[in-house]
Every structure is written in structure tokens, then in C-alpha cells.
């Protein structure tokens, strides 16, 4: 007989799009370690926010994340999801309502893709039809044809496909919160960029509250609504939007973590339309074109690649709306225009 789940878990479960997460003075001290892994960590994450934890290996970012789903027990402090004290809930029941994706994916090799995605629905005693429908819906969402993939085994999929299944599996029971530990870390750069773009599009429609751990600052800039730059003992050096961190790093540590090329990194966040475009005629001759939905970094990339002085900018209907050159890109960075976060509403 399954125990009747705690009502607080059901209240968390009832919410499918984004829950408020609060960590209050959370400390994790491992026995026989001179310093705490996480020391006095406090943070409030708004519903639907995509928060990036960035920091070097061993800084405690993963430990901090794992405290949220009770994978790691904090030594002191409190954690709440939508006002419910997480530490008072049954860990297994709680975790069924928190999506969990790790770098190694951890698909179960003896189960088919459909069975893998259906794990949490099965734990929640969903009916076969409901689970089946959900599996098909999710496979379609992550761009894998259900008829083709549902009955395959993990080893028959590429790394990128497996990672998509990992995300689908975490989304199975429509949890309000997702924890992602370097989910795209093991994929090649091209696949990673693709997965990141797909993931951003997905998040725009599902609006989960997501804690996303990475050591890749560029990934944090690309994906995050807000970035927490962490140093040893999971100390928050700066917690702000990507644009603000790039333009105003709080201290030396943050600057060194951002590394070189802040201007180019900022360009990722700025759409082409922010630039004062030149006349369409200036781009005459170039076959490479830029779209209004591209970022200024895409534009710069294309300019460097082609060596042309200016490239045509096309709108959604493929009409030339102007041209862009390096000067116009520099002008955007020079003037302190308010830069947009990558997930800003279009």
C-alpha cells in the first residue's frame, strides 16, 4: 500500500509552472573537513526564473543545488519551495516533483526510452494511457519522433539525443522546479549550442523555476535570467542579470571569472535590431545575410567570416531592412543602451 503523500508535497506538485524557492542561511559541513562545502547560503528564486550557478569545480555549486532536493542534507539553515519547508517532507516524494538532470544523464540502460520517461509517472501511479500520452507529448517537445524513438534503448541514441531524453524524463510529471547539473557539459560544442537553443525555447513555454549549474560562463550568459557567480564554500560573489554582471562585475573574482572578451559576450545578449542599421544598399554584393532575430554576436561573426564591410539584415518576411557593419556594432556597445536578457519577451 502506498502511503498517502504528505499534503505539503501535493501542494508543491499541484503547481506545474514555476515555484518560489527560498534558501535561508544554508550551511553544509561535511564531517572531517576543515571548511564548510556551503557556508551561510541565502537566495530567493522567483517563480519561473532560470538561475545559473557558475563557479569553478569544487566551489560547492552542485552541493548547493543538491540540498534543494534533499540529495544532500544541510547542516543548518532552511529551504522552502512555495513556502513549504522542504526539510519536513519525505525526500522521495519531494523528488518526484523536482525535475533532475545530470551531466552523465543516467538513463536506465535496461529500459526503453518510453519506459525511462515514464519512471516518475509510474512512481506517481499514473494510468498507462496517461503516461503513454505524456511520453509521446514530451518526445515531440524535445524533437524526437515518438514512433521512431519510444521503443529504442538508450544505447541506440546519440549523446545529444540521450540528453534530450534526459530533459524529457525530468519534465515527465510536469514538476514546478527543475535542477540541472551541467546537463549539456558532455556534448560537443555544436550539439551543445543546439541543445541550449532548444532548451531556451522550451523554457519560454513551460516557465519552470530552474537551478542550472555550470562552470561555463558563456553558457550562463546565454541561458540565465540571473547568474550567481560562486566562489569557494559556495559564497555568492555576485547575483544579477547577465548584462549587469558583464557591464559591472562586482569584484576582481567576478571579472577574472568572466575572463576576456566581455564585449563579445555582451553582444550575445543584444539583438541586431538594437543597432542603428545602415542603408540596405550598403550591403550590396554579400550573399551572407543576418536576420533581425539574430544577436549582434551572430552579426559580428558573419562579418569576420566573410570579410565584407557590411551585411544585409533581413526581417521575418525576408525583406532587407538595412545593413550592419562593425562600426554600428561598436556604436551599440559604446552607448550605454539597456541590454536585454536573452530570455526577454519578444
Amino acid at each position: 500500500m502506498p502511503k498517502q503523500p504528505n499534503t505539503a508535497v501535493l501542494q508543491i506538485a499541484g503547481k506545474t509552472s514555476g515555484a518560489l524557492i527560498e534558501l535561508d542561511h544554508v550551511t553544509k559541513q561535511y564531517p572531517n573537513q576543515p571548511v564548510a562545502a556551503v557556508q551561510d547560503f541565502s537566495m530567493t528564486v522567483q517563480p519561473g526564473e532560470l538561475i545559473m550557478f557558475v563557479g569553478p569545480s569544487g566551489c560547492g555549486k552542485t552541493t548547493t543545488m543538491k540540498i534543494i532536493n534533499r540529495n544532500t542534507a544541510p547542516t543548518s539553515g532552511s529551504i522552502s519551495i512555495d513556502g513549504r519547508d522542504v526539510l519536513s517532507l519525505n525526500p522521495s516524494e519531494l523528488r518526484r516533483h523536482i525535475g533532475y538532470v545530470i551531466q552523465q544523464i543516467g538513463l536506465f540502460p535496461h529500459m526503453t526510452i518510453a519506459e525511462n520517461i515514464g519512471v516518475v509517472p509510474k512512481l506517481l501511479n499514473w494510468s498507462k494511457e496517461k503516461t503513454n500520452d505524456r511520453v509521446h507529448e514530451l518526445l515531440t517537445t524535445v524533437g524526437l519522433e515518438p514512433g521512431d524513438f519510444a521503443h529504442r534503448y538508450p544505447k541506440q541514441l546519440s549523446g545529444g539525443q540521450q540528453q534530450r531524453v534526459g530533459v524529457a524524463r525530468a519534465l515527465a510529471a510536469d514538476p514546478p522546479v527543475m535542477l540541472m547539473d551541467e546537463p549539456f557539459g558532455a556534448t560537443d560544442p555544436i550539439t551543445r549550442e543546439k541543445l541550449q537553443a532548444e532548451f531556451l525555447r522550451l523554457q519560454a513555454s513551460i516557465g519552470k523555476t530552474i537551478i542550472f549549474v555550470t562552470h561555463d560562463f558563456d553558457e550562463a550568459v546565454r541561458l540565465g535570467d540571473r547568474i550567481a557567480v560562486l566562489s569557494n564554500r559556495s559564497q555568492i560573489e555576485q547575483f544579477d542579470t547577465p548584462a549587469n554582471i558583464l557591464t559591472n562585475p562586482a569584484n576582481e573574482y567576478v571579472s577574472s571569472f568572466i575572463g576576456l572578451g566581455t564585449a563579445i559576450k555582451r553582444l550575445v545578449l543584444i539583438p541586431v535590431t538594437e543597432a542603428r542599421l545602415g542603408p540596405a544598399s550598403a550591403a550590396a554584393g554579400g550573399t551572407t545575410t543576418i536576420r533581425t532575430t539574430d544577436s549582434l554576436r551572430d552579426a559580428l561573426d558573419a562579418l569576420v567570416l566573410t570579410g565584407l564591410p557590411a551585411l544585409a539584415v533581413l526581417d521575418e518576411q525576408n525583406r532587407a531592412v538595412g545593413s550592419i557593419s562593425v562600426d554600428q556594432i561598436s556604436a551599440v556597445l559604446g552607448t550605454e543602451v539597456p541590454v536585454l536578457a536573452p530570455t526577454a519577451e519578444v
Binding site: N69, N71, S92, E93, L94, R95, R96, H97, Y100, I102, Q103, Q104, I105, G106, L107, F108, P109, H110, V119, V120, L123, R169, A170, L179
Partner: peptide, 23 residues
């Protein structure tokens, strides 16, 4: 059983006994 598979099984909300039986 690789640690990553154990971690994801527990992280998805399987109890240790379920992990033993089903994974």
C-alpha cells in the same frame, strides 16, 4: 551500477528499495 544511474534514480524520487528492485 554506475553512480550516475544511482544518482538519477534516487534524484527522480525512487526509494532505495525501488532502485534496488527496478534498476
Amino acid at each position: 551500477v554506475p553512480p550516475a544511474i544511482m544518482e538519477s534514480a534516487l534524484g527522480m524520487g525512487m526509494t532505495p528499495f525501488t532502485v534496488l528492485l527496478r534498476v
